[in-house]
Design a protein around this nucleic acid. Structure first.
Lengths: 354, 354
DNA sequence: CTGAAAGCGCTTACAG
DNA sequence: CTGAAAGCGCTTACAG
C-alpha cells in the first residue's frame, strides 16, 4: 500500500542497497542517481523513519528536557533549537516533566531506552544532577542557562549568557545616575545563573565602596514555586520593601519574574517609576517597551543560545570532544531606557565614575 | 548489548509473542504475568519504540503543527497538549514551519510518511486549508483557535474559544461606562477568530444604535507580519488615531499583540490610561496586572483548550466519529480591572442599559 | 560502485 | 491462552 524502498528498487532495476546508499548520500553512479530520483518523484516515496531508526544506530532524534514550556522565555529558546535541529534533519521531541522529580527521572529513562542521539537540558535548578544519568548511558548532552553544581566532578557542556557581566552593566548604570541605595529583588531559585547576576551587580558597588549586601540584610529572598505564585510572592515582598522606613532609590530585579512582581506591586501602591523609584531588570521583554516608563534592562539572545547549543551538541554527536567540557558564554546587551531617574546632579554621593 | 524482547522470552521460557501481549495489555495467564514482570525488572527492559512503530500500524505519535513556538500564548497551549498526550502514552512532536508555506507542506508530507496517529493544527490564517492533505491521508486532525474558511466543504473538528461572546462582553462593559465613541484596533490576520471578536463587539453597539464600523472607516487595519513587526505597526497605527481631530474615548484591542502596540504608543505619547483614554483587550496576560492601570480584558483558557483538543483527537484516533465534525466552543472569562474610565455620570449619551 | 542476504526488535495472523 | 514463523522497511558488512 505504501511506497517502500523495494518499490524503488523494482522500478529502477537496482538493489535496495543502492537505493539506501542514495538516501544516505553515499557515492553512487551518476546515471543511477538520475534513475532513482526519477522513480522517487514518480512513486512519491519517502523513507520510513521508523525503519531507519530501528536499523541504524543513531535515531536522529534529539530531546529537549525542560520543566515546563509555559514559561515566557523558553518559547523562543525551544523554537530556535527546533529550527536548527530540523534544518539538520533531526527530529526534536520536547520532554516536559512539570517540576516533578520522579517524572524527570522517568523521562530520562525513556530517552535512554529510545536511544536519542542527544539531549539539551534546561535544568530547573543548580543542583539538578540528573544529566549524569544521560552521560552514563553515553548520550551527549548540552546544558542551557545554568552551570550545574556538580560540574566540577562531572563535567558537562554548557551554553550560558554572561550573567555576571549583565549584572555589572546594570550596576554601573545605576551608579552613574547616582543611585547608592539599591535593593536587590531576588527570587530564591537555587540558581548559579541568578547568583552570577547578583554577584556582578554587587561587585561593582563593592569596588565603589558600597556594601549592598549589608543594605539587603533585612529582606530575605522570595521563595520559588509556580510562575504565577512567584509573581504574587515577589509582589508581597516588594510591598514590604516600599513600606520600610528607609526605602531605596532603585531596585534591581534579578529576572523577568521578579520584575513582574515589582511592577505589579508598584502599580497597586500607586508608586511611579522613575519619579518615586528607579527600576532595572536582568532580561528584556516586549512588555518593557509598553510601560509608561520603559524598562532599562539587559537582554539575553535566546535565539543565538539555541543555535550555539545545537552546534555544540551536533559536534559531540559527531564524536568531536576536543574542547570538552566547553562553557560557551554569550554576550548580553544593555538597553538604557526610561526607568532610571538621574540623581547625579542633585546628589553629592553620586559615584565618581563616568 | 541492549535488552530486547528476546531476552525476556529466554529468561521466562515464554515466547516473544506472549511478552508482546503482556506489553500491549492483552490477556495472559496470571503466573506468566508475574514471571514477565520479574524478568523485566531484573534485566531492565524497555520496549524499543522504533521497532514497535515499524511493526504496528499506529505510531503513538502526535504532531503539533504550529507556525512558530515563539509566540506568547502558544507556550501554555502546547504545554497542555504535550502534558495530556504524554499522560496517554503518546509521543508529541512539535512541528514548526516558521510561516513558510512550502515548509508547512513539507512538514505535512513528513507527518504523513511517518504515519503519525494524529495532528493538532494551529492554523496561521483562516484560509490555511492544508489540513485536507492530512485528512486525505487518513490522519485525524483537530484545529485550534480557528475555524477554517474551507470548513463548509471539508469539515474538520475544531476547538475554539467563544470569541464572539468575548467581544460582546467587552462592548457591554464599555457601554455601561458610557463609552460611545470607540476605536477598534484590529490586526489584519485573515482570521475568523478575530472577526468573531469584532463582530461580537460591534453587534452590541449596533443593538444600542451605535454604528462603530462607520466610526472606524478612516482607519484601516494593521497588516500582519512577524510578532515584533506587528507591535511596531500597531504602534504607528495607534498614533495616527490619537492625533486625529476627533479621538475616541476608548480603544478595543482585538488581541494581545495589538494591545502591546497600543500600550507602547500611549507610553511614548505620554497618554495616560484611563484618564486620557480607556482600553479593553481580548486576551489576558500577566503583564496586564503589572501596569499602572491594570487592563480590563477577556481571557481564554488555553490549558483547557489543550485538554479538550487532546480528548477530541484521541476519540477520533480510536475511531469514534459519532459527533464529527465537532465545534468545541470554550467559555471566556471577563476581568473588569482599571483601564476603563467611568463616563456614565458625566455623559448624557451613556447607554440606557444597566 | 553494486547486489544478495542477514537482521534491527517488535507484532500479528495462524494453528494449537 | 500460547508459540512458531513471517515480515514491517530499512541498513550494513561482505563479496564481487
Amino acid at each position: 500500500m505504501n511506497v517502500t524502498i523495494n518499490d524503488i528498487a523494482r522500478a529502477t532495476g537496482l538493489s535496495t542497497a543502492t537505493i539506501s546508499k542514495y538516501i544516505n548520500h553515499k557515492k553512487i553512479r551518476e546515471e543511477n542517481r538520475i534513475l532513482i530520483e526519477k522513480a522517487i518523484q514518480e512513486l512519491g516515496y519517502t523513507p520510513n523513519r521508523n525503519a531507519q531508526l530501528l536499523r541504524a544506530k543513531n535515531t536522529h532524534t534529539i530531546g529537549i528536557l525542560i520543566s515546563d514550556l509555559g514559561n515566557y522565555f523558553w518559547g523562543e529558546l525551544v523554537n530556535s533549537i527546533i529550527k536548527h535541529f530540523t534544518d539538520h534533519g533531526y527530529t526534536v521531541i520536547v520532554c516536559s516533566f512539570f517540576f516533578e522529580h520522579q517524572k524527570e527521572i522517568d523521562t530520562i529513562q525513556d530517552i535512554i531506552s529510545q536511544h536519542f542521539d542527544g539531549v539539551i537540558m534546561l535544568p530547573s535548578c543548580w543542583h539538578d544532577d540528573l544529566y549524569q544519568l544521560l552521560q552514563n548511558a553515553g548520550i551527549p548532552i548540552v546544558m542551557l542557562d545554568q552551570i550545574p553544581a556538580s560540574m566540577r566532578h562531572f563535567p558537562v557542556d554548557c551554553v550560558i549568557s554572561d550573567n555576571y557581566r549583565g549584572g555589572a552593566l546594570l550596576a554601573e548604570h545605576l551608579l552613574e545616575k547616582g543611585h547608592t541605595k539599591v535593593w536587590i529583588m531576588e527570587q530564591y531559585l537555587d540558581s548559579y545563573t541568578i547568583e552570577q547576576r547578583i554577584q556582578g551587580f554587587v561587585d561593582v558597588y563593592q569596588k565603589n565602596g558600597i556594601d549592598l549586601l549589608k543594605q539587603q540584610d533585612s529582606f530575605p529572598p522570595v521563595s520559588f514555586a509556580s510562575t504565577a505564585e512567584t509573581i504574587i510572592q515577589s509582589n508581597l515582598h516588594f510591598q514590604k520593601l516600599i513600606d520600610s522606613s528607609d526605602p531605596p532609590t532603585a531596585v534591581f530585579f534579578d529576572c523577568y519574574l521578579s520584575a513582574m512582581g515589582g511592577l505589579s506591586a508598584a502599580s497597586q501602591a500607586r508608586i511611579s517609576v522613575p519619579q518615586d523609584i528607579s527600576f532595572v531588570c536582568f532580561d528584556d521583554d516586549p512588555l518593557f517597551k509598553t510601560m509608561s516608563a520603559t524598562m532599562t534592562c539587559v537582554s539575553q539572545d535566546l535565539t543565538s543560545m539555541g543555535k550555539h547549543a545545537v552546534e555544540l551538541l551536533l559536534k559531540r554527536i559527531h564524536g568531536d570532544y576536543t574542547d570538552f567540557p566547553k562553557i560557551d558564554m554569550l554576550d548580553v546587551v544593555f538597553h538604557p531606557r526610561c526607568s532610571v531617574k538621574d540623581l547625579s546632579e542633585h546628589n553629592s554621593t553620586a559615584s565618581g565614575k563616568d
